[in-house]
Design a protein around this nucleic acid. Structure first.
Length: 222
DNA sequence: GCTTCGATCTTCT
DNA sequence: GAAGATCGAAGCG
């Protein structure tokens, strides 16, 4: 299969721009994870932009910390964080070092390694569910904190950007998912996806879950 | 179908 | 001590 490939340095330069502008490059790009179990490759169909210190929804909003330090580094590295006690999510760092902008990988379509991804994901009902959702995508690729800071253009990761960014008419945008408070919802339509892709995650508005916890305090565990 | 809720633990206040 | 860039199962209509 013949295709034009940009060298890593050139690909990295494509990402050294604000995340919202880098999004068309990442949509349709293929991220490959090499491992002994077998390679898994995902065609990215949905991303979300996080714009660093100026973005209330970003982990970088409150400044640099041990967790998010990768975000403050150069473009083309993977920022992996652990959340909700059981899930990993991955961002591709964009922009200049120190800006802490990045693109959260929200969903993709498995293009290679369905079997390996299926085992990691415990055989979901539909193949579309293999990488639909940020935590599912990282699970299908076998990404965890050990890959935080990894260069996406160097083994065991191989990111292949398309020769051209996705056309504007092929991209839809909307409010970010799961981000509550002033940084979420309609104020920041920084979620981008390829129009009509079935692998795009379903939109669920950010929900406030203060309920019992707020009043009961210690009623958490019976 | 759609909505609600529990699981589980790191990170930050 | 509380919240969180989530997921999947259970409950309900």
């Amino acid at each position: 299969m013949e295709q034009i490939r940009l060298d890593p340095a050139e690909q990295r330069s494509r990402l050294t721009i604000p995340a919202t502008e880098a999004a068309p490059w990442l949509l349709g790009a293929v991220l490959r994870r090499e491992s002994e179990e077998g390679d898994v490759a995902v065609r990215i169909t949905e991303v979300e932009a996080y714009l660093g210190a100026a973005d209330p929804g970003s982990h970088a909003f409150r400044g640099k910390s041990a967790r998010n330090s990768t975000m403050f580094g150069p473009a083309g590295h993977l920022y992996v964080y652990f959340t909700y006690g059981m899930h990993y999510c991955a961002n591709v760092v964009c922009g200049e070092p120190g800006q802490a902008t990045g693109l959260l990988l929200r969903a993709g379509e498995i293009v290679e390694g369905h079997a390996v991804a299926g085992v990691r994901r415990k055989q979901p009902k539909s193949p579309l569910d293999l990488a639909r959702g940020p935590a599912r995508l990282t699970q299908a690729l076998g990404i965890d904190r050990s890959l935080d800071g990894a260069d996406v253009f160097t083994s065991p990761l191989r990111l292949e950007l398309p020769p051209e960014p996705a056309a504007a008419e092929a991209i839809s945008c909307g409010p970010r998912v799961g981000v509550s408070g002033e940084g979420g919802g309609e104020a920041y339509p920084w979620r981008f996806w390829l129009t009509g892709e079935p692998s795009v995650s379903k939109y669920r508005p950010a929900v406030q879950r203060a309920r019992v916890r707020a009043s009961g305090a210690t009623a958490k565990r019976a």
